[in-house]
Design a protein around this nucleic acid. Structure first.
Lengths: 211, 211
DNA sequence: ATTGATATGTGAAATGAATCACCGATTTAG
DNA sequence: CTAAATCGGTGATTCATTTCACATATCAAT
């Protein structure tokens, strides 16, 4: 019997998987929950509880086999399945992402880039085909794009998200300093708002000073 | 009597604050917990519970005054306090951040940029003073840099974080696809790992398909 | 071989968070 | 003016997560 895995745990699996790949690259073949916890800012207890959602994958007394644990997480989370991605907004950040080889290595194929500025579309040279933002929804449908990355200015973010959703994406990653909300159920939105995170750090700093 | 505010709630305050600034910019002067909840992917109940950590700031029956609520959050979280920030790694992403005016508007002063490539340091023109990465720790001390932004390649991220910590920063924002952990207590690390988030979306998509 | 340190797995307990339920106040529509 | 809908504040309840405690297995060192 398999228990339902909480969303929070799925997110932790992505982080754990990231650590495991690093360990593998560094030639580490075994790892303990204590080490993983310290690397992820968590406790060994939590890590073990979370990994137990995968069944018994560790060896009592000697920790986890890194490759085995990574494989188990990959199986459960479906990391072997490649996903199609598009980037909207080809300014400095967006165009930098276009050329990032890490996407492909991680199983994500960037199949399109969009911008509302035709000048940028003509100037920018990329292996990835580029299209005007006005055609975004159509291309998302045509290319079966599953995940949209929003790298447009904050003022355009909501509209951009709506176009992606209209095209039928399953997930969005939002880099703009705007909290993007999507009404449709089942569509996942991740806001990576740097300004918001800086403010959060600020608040923790003031809280720490008060304590 | 003021209750201790949970870390999770502080993070939500940053997100709520972001929404409030947008509402203000859009000319909205009053907002309800229900609307805030839908914008943040949360429930009205949760929003109210969290805002209650700020004391009674809403008006029963007619919602919250946007400016008043924003001001209360700003007071409690210390958003009026400006913080000094440095960016390590002046590749595409890092150099894009250097020129981002949103930092200054949000109360963060970028006072230094670092890179290990002297060629980049000479080529790049910026209002922000640039220094070689080897001098990072010294400049962090000298300039009293409070927050470090890590935009270096993954392989250099751990070393970069260590230098920031040695210089005495209070917080780190990590953009590299590496989970940065810091042993020292009281130092806040925020990992904005895009690849990790994409994998997370992937796992949710496979989970949704199974269900 | 044996001792001590360290490891996972896992129930039980404690803690924390989300949800429910309801009061009193306000707004809106007609 | 009235009635219905909406709103914030808040205790109580339910639910989920983290922590604790410990049995058991492995490893390293002597």
């Amino acid at each position: 019997m398999t228990r339902k895995i909480p969303v929070k745990t799925l997110h932790r699996f992505s982080m754990i998987y990231c650590c495991l790949l690093e360990s593998l690259a560094a030639g580490v073949s075994r790892i303990s929950s204590r080490i993983l916890g310290s690397q992820l800012g968590s406790t060994a207890d939590s890590i073990r509880k979370e990994i137990n959602y995968l069944g018994e994958v560790g060896d009592v007394g000697s920790g986890y086999d890194v490759a085995k644990l990574a494989g188990r997480i990959s199986d459960v989370c479906g990391f072997e399945k490649r996903r199609t991605v598009a980037i909207a907004g080809l300014g400095k950040v967006g165009s930098a992402l276009l050329e990032n080889p890490e996407f492909e290595n991680a199983g994500f194929d960037i199949v399109a880039g969009f911008d509302s500025n035709t000048n940028i579309l003509e100037t920018l040279t990329s292996k990835v085909p580029l299209y005007p933002a006005s055609e975004l929804t159509d291309w998302v449908k045509k290319l079966n794009i599953e995940i949209g990355i929003i790298a447009v200015p904050p003022s355009a973010a909501a509209d951009c998200a709506a176009r992606f959703v209209a095209g039928g994406v399953s997930g969005l990653v939002n880099f703009s300093s705007t909290t993007v909300a999507v009404a449709q159920k089942g569509i996942i939105v991740r806001n990576l708002d740097m300004i918001c995170e800086l403010r959060f750090i600020n608040s923790l700093m003031t809280a720490n000073q008060k304590a």
